[in-house]
């Protein structure tokens, strides 16, 4: 007889274990990003993590809370990592610090700290920068293989902290491709080309496109997809939010692609470009600012997917994950209110 005795409780993850698991699952994506875009993002991650951590500690001291016990939960670390991944590689250091201080100080702690924030801190910090410094925030590097000037670790450090590499190249020069033109991201290229009346085929002659989406970007997104699937397998995140987001993005972009195959980006392009996978698995699933009911999570994810499509297609910015997540964060209370599951023994609400 091999019977187990009650209680059949399962060990659930503690906050800090959960946060560290999410950070670990970012690593494949970060590694691929490093491979394609160079050292910039590693520097940004280090910067953002340090700034987030220091801000968290300072504010906890100001609030007279136990600093060491709370900073051990690694939530500021995760915010820093996500922010660092999302920021352009050679963004000036002080912008990263502004975003980190705003994310932790204003968006998280003014609302009461971890568990009380209405908005995703990393994305709020990102959007603050995007609104304040639109030019710097949309200056992404071309993939290393297509860049005219190769930037090593030392060059990248110099670019981030002084604005010029050790050979004297500026950030704008670091964005030159082999063709001698300033690089644009795949999503940006498609948007500009389609607005100028080019067809999708003509637009995709551009070397920024890879096998099935943007060069480099497709592999970064695949790596985040893998990390995210592992998170779902370990039940760190529920699959409803990424499922809802990717499904709605796929269906909406699929319909528009089916109707005008030459005038709209393909569903694969939408799914594997920009921050789609990072957003779906690592950002939208933030346990604090996302929906908590099962049905609500599907709606929340679908809402983000629809808004990502809308902003990418008709909006002013090339990518849209940050704005979509923040807008969906605002509707969380309403969604959860209407998705409350029936309590056992009570009737369905009329």
């Amino acid at each position: 007889m091999n019977l187990l005795s009650s209680p059949f409780t399962r060990q659930s993850l503690k906050t800090h274990e959960l946060m560290r698991m999410v950070i670990l699952c970012c690593i494949p994506g970060i590694a691929i990003q490093w491979y394609f875009f160079g050292w910039g993002n590693l520097i940004q991650i280090m910067l953002a993590v340090s700034a987030c951590w220091v801000t968290e500690a300072v504010i906890l001291i100001m609030r007279a809370r136990p600093v060491f016990r709370i900073t051990r939960d690694s939530s500021a670390l995760l915010t820093g990592v996500l922010l660092g991944i999302a920021l352009p590689p050679f963004l000036p250091w002080w912008m990263t610090v502004i975003a980190a201080v705003f994310a932790i100080g204003v968006v998280k702690h003014l609302y009461g700290g971890l568990g009380n924030n209405l908005f995703n801190p990393a994305m709020a910090g990102y959007v603050l920068l995007l609104i304040s410094f639109p030019v710097a925030m949309t200056s992404w590097q071309p993939v290393v293989a297509q860049a005219q000037h190769q930037m090593g670790l030392w060059d990248s450090l110099n670019l981030v902290f002084t604005g010029f590499s050790s050979d004297g190249y500026s950030i704008q020069q670091a964005r030159m491709t082999l063709d001698g033109i300033t690089a644009a991201t795949p999503l940006d290229t498609i948007k500009t080309d389609l607005r100028q009346g080019l067809t999708l085929d003509e637009s995709q002659q551009n070397p920024v496109f890879g096998v099935f989406a943007g060069a480099g970007w497709e592999w970064v997104n695949l790596a985040f997809l893998l990390g995210g699937l592992y998170l779902i397998y370990r039940r760190v995140i529920s699959w409803a939010i990424p499922g809802g987001m990717l499904l709605s993005l796929f269906v909406i972009s699929g319909i528009s692609f089916a109707f005008q195959p030459d005038g709209a980006a393909s569903p694969m392009m939408h799914l594997f470009s920009g921050a789609t996978m990072l957003g779906a698995f690592f950002i939208a699933t933030d346990p604090v600012s996302a929906c908590t009911t099962v049905k609500g999570r599907w709606i929340f994810g679908a809402l983000i997917g629809a808004m990502v499509y809308a902003i990418r297609t008709w909006g002013g910015y090339p990518d849209a994950v940050a704005f979509s997540v923040l807008l969906a964060n605002m509707s969380v209370m309403l969604i959860d209110y209407y998705c409350k599951p029936r309590t056992y023994g009570h009737k369905e609400r009329q």
Partner: peptide, 11 residues
């Protein structure tokens, strides 16, 4: 070098 635009905008 760059204006801190958000301070000038309604947010």
């Amino acid at each position: 070098d760059q204006e801190f635009l958000i301070a000038l905008l309604p947010p």
